[in-house]
Design a binder for these strands. Structure first.
Length: 700
RNA sequence: GGCGCGGUAGCUCAGGUGGUUAGAGCGUUGGAUUCAUAACCCAAAGGUCGGGGGUUCAACUCCCCCCCGCGCUACCA
């Protein structure tokens, strides 16, 4: 395998319309970070970019929902995601934003390049337009009756009841979800990228040259798309949020978010080199290769054939990173193509698909709030169970087990044993190495094998296997101690004990190097314990990392156990969250059959005041109320005792139906009915006039 | 409906181009041990590899059909 001159690694740009969850981490971010940290440890020239994706229709719509501006939305979620990534140890050289001017510029340049080359086609089509909101509507924002099953709440792209895919024009009685009004058809012009023109080229590139080195799930999905035949795809949208189409006759039009988002990788790289050359490094971790870099050096990473470009994404992104973006890059004639797109599948959670909107997810910021000192535990739990070949499953019990049985019991325990023994017998100094026994030699020989084996797994994007390799190294240490039993020899042969502990400590020192890409925080902690400077991958496997007589730091615990209560609380939180979201998302009760005005007129509804309230014996639900109706003072039995105490309703104005036929309830005659609003969760609320009115005021 | 990816021990998952007794971790059981966050170490039990056909001397691995899960897509491969 010939080693590339340099690497450019991208991690999917998170969409800044909401918080991101651990499924996103497992899909793209954690693996990419491990990979990059490994490359850096190898001394390779690598740039690692990411950033917030801040355009598209969902952003202004989220703003509408949160009653704020699109800018406020992206600022909020960009800051949140950025902060979480930092706390989880994501080592981007730059975390950029697609709202930055340099990205607008880059995207427009690429659009213009394609346009000037005559590679874009113009088409005029009729699209639904919301007159009140003064905007064209994306398919998802149009609802109507499904032509196939009659579901009145089908979306413009799909009916979720019968599952059929729709186009907005098929909907019966379409309405805009923004205003609720029926939209009108309006013709509009857009620029399309004729993907079908690149079929042969794409087929050669993917189906022929990457048949063996791309993952089957990625290859299969690409093949499916290519075999299906590609269609022209609109690269512009009617929207006032995004990157302006850089053409004279394009008022009110922006670039399609999927056109500009992947270009964000390029902009981020440009911005990185601008920052390096102006010494503004905020979230960057520049490397020695950047010495003497110029602002134009980003081009080496995007245009030089000796650069290995890698896109880490989740499976929902495969088509954009393997088909559309490469076609864009290829069409410009200026850019290199990805060497690989090691996309992962999805990670499910406790038996169900992760979904922020359904409340069934573990958001990054929530995890960090609950486990602020445990970023590595999450990294490890995800790494050992990445959805590399198929959808995988995250459970809290498994998270606990991975922590308690592996990080604590194997990794942390081994380090602790080696250090505590050294402290006990050798005053915390690395003891001398004597004559090696057969066991020692065997262990040292095995130790030597680990770094390259783990490295090979990483270079083939087998992160689970690599992570298992790391833990196996700690196992080797434990096994070595169990076999040599230095605590027994301490009574008779201290020199031998020294040799054993020297070997054990060298294994621990190796762990700190090999663990760094996977568990960066713990690796640092371990280095501090060993009083060891950061080591490079090339040194790993070496059994002389720690010099004889070297003083060690105080042994502390690398990991701590996580108790059942903590895990149970998380599971409960998850279920509570889901229930809350179910309620919030539950549709309102369907309307009752129509009635006439006369029917309504028959009801005599008034505002009354509760003068007295008392509990009713043997009844959980009933309160016995004395209500001043303006006409009289009467007794009303009301089933609100589970929601209100007598004290809190006394003196309150309420809405009362006064001409309801009297009825005996629990032996007491109830003369009327208090009207209540029942929320989706069954909780009751009083209906009160917004200002006090005199008792007996009629309601109509 | 079509296409893609999956369906392997109780659980989470590995198993290039078909070939001796199908693997790992966890869990379970037994043993050993006490330096260590009762952790470590050793060992055992556990699978008709979704179901049914076929090719082959030989199939978890190739072909066909069916069932299930996930994803993509739509008068269309």
């Amino acid at each position: 395998m010939t080693e590339p001159k340099r690497y450019l690694v991208t991690a999917a740009l998170p969409y800044a319309n909401g918080p991101k969850h651990i499924g996103h981490l497992a899909g793209a971010y954690i693996p990419s970070d491990v990979y990059v940290r490994y490359l850096r440890s190898q001394g390779r020239d690598v740039v690692f970019v990411c950033g917030s994706d801040e355009h598209g229709t969902a952003i202004p719509n989220q703003a509408l929902k949160e009653n704020t501006t699109p800018k406020a939305i992206i600022d909020k979620y960009d800051a949140q995601i950025r902060d979480c990534f930092f706390k989880l140890g994501m080592s981007f050289d730059i975390y950029h934003r697609t709202s930055e001017p340099i990205h607008h510029q880059t995207s427009q340049e690429i659009f213009k390049t394609l346009y000037n080359k005559g590679l874009l086609t113009e088409e005029i089509s009729e699209q639904y337009f919301d007159v009140t909101a003064n905007t064209f509507l994306a398919d998802r924002y149009i609802m109507g009756t499904c032509p196939k099953c009659g579901n009145p709440n089908a979306y413009g792209d799909q009916c979720e009841k019968c599952g059929s895919t729709l186009s907005p024009r098929e909907l019966i009685n379409p309405r805009s979800t923004l205003s609720g009004n029926p939209p009108v058809l309006k013709s509009t012009k857009h620029w399309y990228l004729p993907l079908q023109n690149y079929e042969t080229w794409l087929s050669d590139w993917i189906l022929k040259s990457h048949k063996d080195d791309w993952k089957v799930n990625v290859y299969g999905q690409c093949k499916s798309w290519i075999d299906a035949g590609l269609q022209p795809r609109a690269m512009t949208r009617d929207l006032d949020w995004g990157i302006k189409v850089p053409l004279p006759d394009a008022e009110g039009k922006v670039l399609y978010v999927w056109f500009d988002a992947p270009i964000g990788y390029i902009s981020a790289t440009r911005a990185l080199f601008q920052e390096i050359t102006t010494n503004k490094t905020k979230f960057a971790t520049p490397q020695k290769y950047f010495a003497g870099a110029t602002a134009d050096d980003w081009k080496k990473y995007w245009q030089d054939k000796d650069t290995k470009l890698l896109h880490f994404v989740g499976k929902d992104n495969i088509v954009f990173h393997c088909i559309i973006f490469p076609i864009m890059l290829h069409a410009t004639g200026e850019y290199i193509l990805p060497d690989n797109v090691p996309a992962n599948e999805f990670m499910n959670l406790e038996g169900d698909k992760m979904s922020t909107s359904r409340g069934w997810s573990i958001e990054m910021h929530e995890y960090l709030a609950d486990f602020p000192d445990k970023p590595d535990v999450l990294r490890y739990a995800l790494l050992t169970n990445l959805p590399e070949t198929k959808d995988s499953e995250f459970t809290w019990k498994d998270f606990q087990a991975k922590n308690n049985n592996e990080l604590v019991a194997i990794f942390g325990n081994f380090v602790n044993r080696a250090l505590v023994l050294t402290q006990k017998y050798f005053d915390n100094k690395v003891p001398a190495l004597g004559v090696l026994s057969e066991t020692d030699s065997k262990v040292l020989a095995e130790l030597k094998e680990f770094p390259s084996r783990i490295g090979q797994s990483l270079e083939s994007y087998r992160f689970r296997e690599a992570t298992a390799g790391l833990m196996d190294l700690a196992r080797l240490g434990n096994k070595y101690l169990a076999e040599t039993e230095p605590w027994k020899l301490a009574k008779t042969d201290m020199a031998r004990v020294g040799t054993i502990l020297n070997v054990a400590l060298q294994i621990a020192a190796n762990l700190s190097i090999v663990a760094e890409p996977f568990l960066p925080f713990s690796a640092t902690k371990l280095r501090e314990m060993l009083q060891q400077s950061a080591g490079k991958w090339a040194q790993a496997g070496n059994s002389e990392l720690l010099a004889v007589g070297h003083s060690l730091g105080a042994p502390t615990l690398l990991f701590e156990k996580i108790e059942d209560e903590v895990i149970n609380a998380q599971i409960k939180k998850l279920n509570d969250n889901k229930k809350a979201m179910e309620l919030a998302n539950q549709p309102a009760e369907p309307a009752k059959p129509e009635i006439s005005f006369d029917d309504f007129q028959k009801m005599d509804i008034r505002v009354g005041t509760i003068l007295q309230a008392e509990r009713v014996e043997k009844s959980k639900k009933l309160l016995k109320l004395q209500v001043d109706t303006g006409i009289d003072t009467r007794t009303v039995m009301s089933g609100i005792a589970e929601h209100f105490s007598p004290e809190e309703v006394t003196g309150k104005q309420v809405t009362i139906l006064v001409n309801l036929a009297p009825r005996k309830i629990m032996g007491v005659e109830s003369q009327g009915m208090i009207l209540m609003a029942a929320d989706k969760d069954g909780k009751l609320r009083l209906l009160q006039p917004n200002e006090g009115v005199s008792p007996g005021a009629t309601v109509s």
